[in-house]
Amino acid sequence: MFQIRIHGRGGQGVVTAAEILSIAGFMEGQHAQAFPSFGSERMGAPVMAFCRLDEREIRLREPVMAPDALIIQDTTLLHQVDLFQGLDRRHGYLIINTTKRYDELGIGEYVNSFLPHHICTVAASEWARKFIGRPVPNIALLGAFCALTRRVKLESLQEAVLEKFPGRIGEMNQKAAAAAYDAIRLN
């Protein structure tokens, strides 16, 4: 089983990201489960969402306590919430939406122990602003997730995005996801 935890704030599409990732997994024949941290839905409040991918039926209902991959949509949460709880630095994946360097974020030392190809920063809000016109980083980050972890194919993600957002919004999000994917793959 591969477990993903996504952190962000209300309005940034955190829950939607987990849902879309589960749809992408499902499209590849995987069993997938996605659910939110069940908070109030206030804009701007810290929010997290979970996704599990497995070859077998997923029965477990606990929140993702020990993620294999962590996606951070909003770095202003870094020193407010215990974002890294349960993340294994030797094997885990870390994807952060930022244009800053790790030491600028104050986590330079923390990220040292990750495998280099297990960690990345993505200018997801910038990609979103460019392709969607709004800084909603969730789908671009999923593009980076596909590139980094290879747990889900970009094509499946693109298909899932379109299922969730049929039409133009979906297409714009697809472009943001592809751009982020390419940026990580080429790195």
């Binding site: 849902e19 749809i23 489960q33 996605a34 659910f35 939110p36 997923i58």
Partner: peptide, 10 residues
């Protein structure tokens, strides 16, 4: 509530 109502699954 939430655990099922808001969960995406197959």
């Amino acid at each position: 509530g939430f655990i099922l109502t808001h969960a995406y699954e197959r």
